[in-house]
Simulated assay, not measured.
Amino acid sequence: MAQAGGVRGVDTTGTGRSTVTAADWRLSDEVPERVAASCLYDSAGWLRAWEDIGIEKRSRHAYVHTDPEHPDGASVLPLYAVHECPFWDGYERQVDLVGRFGNPVIFAGSPYSMYGKRGHVPAALVRGAHATAMEWIASGPAELLVVPNLTEEGVADWLETAGPPVGRILLERTYSCDLDLDAGFDQHMFRVTNKIRRDVQRRLRRADERGLTIRMVEGPEAHALVPAAYPLTVDTSDKNDWPALFDEDALHGMLRVPGAMMVAAEVDGRLVGAFFAFRRGSGG
Rank of each mutant, 00 (worst) to 15 (best):
V7I: 12
T12K: 07
T13R: 14
T15A: 07
S18H: 14
V20A: 12
T21I: 08
D29R: 08
V31G: 03
R34I: 06
L40R: 11
Y41M: 04
Y41L: 07
D42I: 00
D42H: 02
D42M: 00
A44W: 09
W46Q: 05
W46E: 00
R48N: 06
D52A: 13
I53V: 14
G54K: 15
E56F: 01
R60K: 14
A62L: 07
A62N: 07
Y63Q: 09
E69T: 00
E69I: 00
H70A: 08
P71A: 12
G73K: 15
L79G: 05
Y80P: 12
E84L: 10
C85L: 03
D89V: 14
Y91I: 15
Y91M: 14
R93W: 03
L97G: 09
R100V: 09
G102F: 03
N103E: 02
F107N: 03
S113M: 06
M114G: 03
Y115N: 09
G119L: 01
V126E: 00
V126A: 01
R127H: 06
G128S: 10
H130A: 13
T132H: 10
E135S: 14
G140R: 15
E143N: 11
V146K: 00
V155K: 05
D157F: 01
E160P: 03
P165N: 03
V166R: 11
G167K: 02
R168H: 08
L171M: 14
S176N: 15
F185T: 13
N194D: 08
K195N: 13
K195L: 11
I196Y: 10
R197G: 06
D199E: 08
R202A: 03
R205W: 01
D208N: 10
E209A: 15
M216A: 05
V217C: 05
G219N: 09
A222L: 06
L232E: 02
L232H: 05
K239N: 07
D241R: 15
W242E: 11
P243M: 04
L245W: 09
G253A: 06
G253L: 04
G259R: 08
E266W: 01
G269T: 09
G269H: 00
R270H: 05
G273R: 04
A274E: 04
A277N: 13
A277R: 05
F278K: 03
R279A: 13
G281R: 14
